[in-house]
Design a binder for these strands. Structure first.
Lengths: 345, 345
DNA sequence: TGACCATGAAAAAACCCACCCTCAAAAGCA
DNA sequence: TGCTTTTGAGGGTGGGTTTTTTCATGGTCA
């Protein structure tokens, strides 16, 4: 009834534990007759070795842990898919844990995974960790050389490997795209400053305007407070006179909300208002018109991060030097910024 | 440099392993002087017990495994959040594995989690498993009474616990909603039949029409082939004369695509065409107008499934009888079926 | 025919790490 | 000296792998 173990099998067949173990490994030390008897019994009872015992013995589990804030986000799910592809090709399995953007959960899951459950961990920082700026829980693992690679959000001051995008440059290019359409009254919908990615995209926005000899109108820079209703905050932009003729939102959700508010006020998209978002995801493909966005290539980010991690795991001697890899971003032009978008439904 | 173990600590301090173990547990058997020396050393070297050894010793890991096809889906991420809430309140951690809708990955992840990594597993069937109808890989675990609870998609012929929704009834109510608006030329966008949830929603659609004395027009029933472009398949519905005046799509993606195609053909929503989707998610809230949908209450489904699982895990004697729990569905009426939707942005 | 060694098969033991129970040695006290 | 109390060492356990040992058999050769 219960799960068979080497011991229970050995007892049932009147042989020793090591004999069973060797028979299962087709060791030549075991006579064909004994081996067949053991294999038969194991097939019948569906024996499988206990993974904890294997992990303890080999100090290797064949598992890669991933810690993400949550998985509802399309971007993270693309990263995970990329990780999985590389990991599985190398014979590893992937287990995922959610930090829920909380430092405590992040720390506890890292402890769990790093204390034997996984051979290496890939992670992106929880918002709370980023906000508090307290990265001490990573130090022991870094010091011991435990394989650890960050992606997207990472602790810049620690000597760690990370795979990121150039948010500033991507923000600049998205803004440049709006400018090239002839839009001049550009608004930005951003996040609080402590989320560095949002801040960097804002820097890119400012740079693009500066490069083109334009002034930044601080009234058109909106920093969303996630605890309050998003629609009401964004609506403020449309009450300005004159209203913006171009909006760059640092994620696709803000962009989609802006787009729909524009419909409500009767603005023509993209003629009267062009909207571009960030992080090409599931929302951007289903708005009307569909959203132009900066694409982050989550899949490639995941692949690259997994490759860095596998190199760390399989390094015989000292761990490789920490390195930061930057994944190129792209621009997908759809109906929200172009009357003649390339993509079809 | 390496991770400290009880043994390495004992050696470094010239005491025995058991002394270290007891000191860490504040056992009164250890003198304050010795204990303080040991605790000091452990703090300095950030000692943490190896989880594999703990799991092996106690035959209990405090971990719940979850296997889902992928996590990009909003519905699954809500289920996981619900699971997590219940699990964490009971002192368990949650680890997630992706089956990618493949039977092989589903089987292997189940083996991994059930062979020591987790105390119990929550899962929803991979599409491939459902298509092939081969559920043999679950039998050993069911026979042994390993804690296992399915949610959403489950093997109906096996004696297992599951948490599901009444898809037929939900489909009937969604269709009824369209009928009550006065729509009569109803179309259905569904999935292949082997995905039972799609099929059951179709049954509900048919039932609603029958109940209202209406005939089902088979030309208005579209079964999507996921391997071909979705837009082209759905566009067929709009080429019919007269076109449908109401569409029930069995998921939010199909509904959103239909909505946007309707915009392209210039139809007025909801006056000329009402659209209702299924599985209230991230897409439905960002279309224009926003999508009315059947809500599946993924969070509650996750909570209920986790509660069933915990009851199994913590049952002292024989495992409780398999039971099927049905989660109520609801209807969220938004702009795609009502000129006066209740929800605000 | 008896001593010796090679061979093969399987058992025993060590190891991975932490926990926990048992028990011995040392110290303290009368 | 004898008794109790303190202190900490030792060994078994969980489940598997791997190295070492044991033991019986068979063959070789003097």
């Amino acid at each position: 009834m219960k799960k068979p173990t080497l011991k229970s099998i050995a007892k049932a067949l009147g042989v020793s534990v090591s004999t069973v173990s060797k028979a299962l490994k087709n060791s030549p030390e075991i006579s064909p007759r004994t081996r067949e008897r053991i294999l038969e019994y194991c097939r019948l009872h569906q024996y499988e070795p206990n993974r904890m015992a294997l992990g303890l013995r080999h100090r290797r589990t064949g598992i890669i842990g991933v810690i993400v804030p949550q998985t509802g986000h399309y971007f993270f799910s693309r990263v995970i898919t990329g990780i999985q592809k590389v990991a599985e090709a190398a014979g590893y399995r992937v287990l995922i844990a959610h930090s829920n953007n909380e430092s405590r959960a992040e720390r506890e899951h890292l402890q769990l995974l790093a204390n034997g459950y996984a051979d290496g961990v890939l992670l992106t920082l929880a918002k709370e960790t980023l906000q508090k700026g307290d990265f001490r829980h990573f130090l022991p693992w870094i010091q011991r050389g435990f394989p650890l690679v960050f992606f997207d959000r990472y602790p810049e001051k620690l000597p760690v490997s990370a795979v990121i995008i150039d948010d500033t440059e991507a923000g600049r290019r998205a803004t440049e795209h709006l400018l090239r359409m002839g839009k001049r009254r550009l608004a930005l919908i951003s996040t609080p400053v402590y989320l560095l990615v949002g801040y960097r995209r804002e820097l890119g926005f400012r740079k693009a305007l500066n490069d083109n000899g334009l002034l930044v109108d601080e009234n058109r820079i909106l920093r969303i407070d996630e605890r309050r209703p998003l629609g009401e905050q964004i609506r403020g932009l449309f009450r300005q006179t004159p209203p913006p003729d171009g909006i760059f939102a640092v994620n696709e959700q803000y962009a989609a909300i802006a787009l729909n508010l524009a419909h409500e006020t009767g603005m023509k998209i993209p003629a009267e208002l062009a909207v571009i978002g960030f992080s090409d995801g599931i929302i951007a493909r289903h708005t009307y018109p569909r959203l132009s966005t900066v694409v982050q290539h989550g899949f490639r980010m995941g692949q690259t991060a997994a490759e860095l991690l596998l190199a760390q795991i399989e390094a015989d001697e000292l761990p490789p030097k920490p390195q930061i890899k930057i994944i190129d971003t792209g621009l997908v032009v759809r109906g929200s910024t172009s009357a003649y978008p390339v993509e079809r439904l």
